[in-house]
Structure formats: structure tokens, C-alpha cells
Amino acid sequence: MQTEIIISGFGGQGALFAGQLLAYTGLDHGLHVTWFPSYGPEMRGGTAHCTVILSDDEIGSPVVKNPSAAIVMNIPSLEKYEPLVASDGVLVVNTSLIDRHATRQDIDIIEVPANEIAEELGEKRLANLVLTGALIERLGVLTIEQVGKSLGNHIPEHRRNLLESNREALQRGAEIAQRAVQPG
């Protein structure tokens, strides 16, 4: 089984880190993984996205056309990736920054006001993890506990004081995904 996840937003929203976290978690729990970033002079405000592949088999291509899941953190990302998510896939939408609904009927859409939740947690930069929590809850590949554990193993030293609020953010995202209606 192979699962492909694209995480996309503005530079600075933490899309690349969220993807790395999933890759680390996959590695820590015995999966084959690849993490493939967009790269470039993104400091000047472009978009940043990455493709993470989790598989129980050797991974060939690190890029895919139709990912099993996507987290979109802004409108351009929604426009680009909503049409591409594979049928029956998962799309996590950051409604804090996206003021329209995704329209696909054949995928599982989870709307998460990630920035508001992050602000409730007192740290704006946690929106990426709220979204990641929501995705994990519905993806069925890794668990929130596993992601939380790997976070503890790989969080950069200067952010270690944020570990608990990071885990809280994952949890809050997961709760939203539990509450959201599952497709029939």
C-alpha cells in the first residue's frame, strides 16, 4: 500500500515541516518514505509545497499526479490540488484562509479553521499541525499518537518548549475531523 500526501501553502506556513513530520513518523514506524519539496527563492513570498509518500514497499517516483490526500493552506493551493486528489482521497482545507468550499463529491473533504484554533492555543504557527492532525485522523495510515511521538523525537531543540502545544494542535485537528461528517 502506498499513500501520497501533498501539503501546500504560502512560504512560512509550515507546509514543508508538516510534511517532514509525516515522513519522520513513517520512518519511525517502519514504512518506506520520501519527502519531496518545492524549492527555490521562496523567501520572497512564493508558494511552498511538498509531496510525502508513505509505503510498505520500496518507493519509485517521489512525485505523483494524483495524490491520495492533500492539505491546502491557501486559495491557490486549493485551486491547484482539489482537482488532482485521487477519487476517494482526502482533502483538508484551511478555512481560516480559504473562503470558499471545495466542490468535489468523490473525495472526503475536511474543513478546518486552523489559524483560529492555533490562535486559541496561543501560537499562530501551529496551524500546520492542526491541519496535519485532521488529515491523520481520516487518512488511516498513521495515528495521532505515532505522529505525536515522532514529533518528540525530531522537534528542533529551539522549539522543544512548544512540544506540548504542538501535540495539542494535532489533537485539536483530529477532533475536528472526528466531528466532521463522514461521506456515506
Binding site: Q20, A23, L27, H32, V33, T34, W35, F36, P37, Y39, I59, P62, V63
Partner: peptide
């Protein structure tokens, strides 16, 4: 190529 330089893999 650039993708091998930039990607992460175990």
C-alpha cells in the same frame, strides 16, 4: 539532479 539534492529519504 535537483530533486535528488533536495529530497529527503531514509
Amino acid at each position: 539532479d535537483g530533486s535528488i539534492g533536495q529530497m529527503m529519504e531514509p
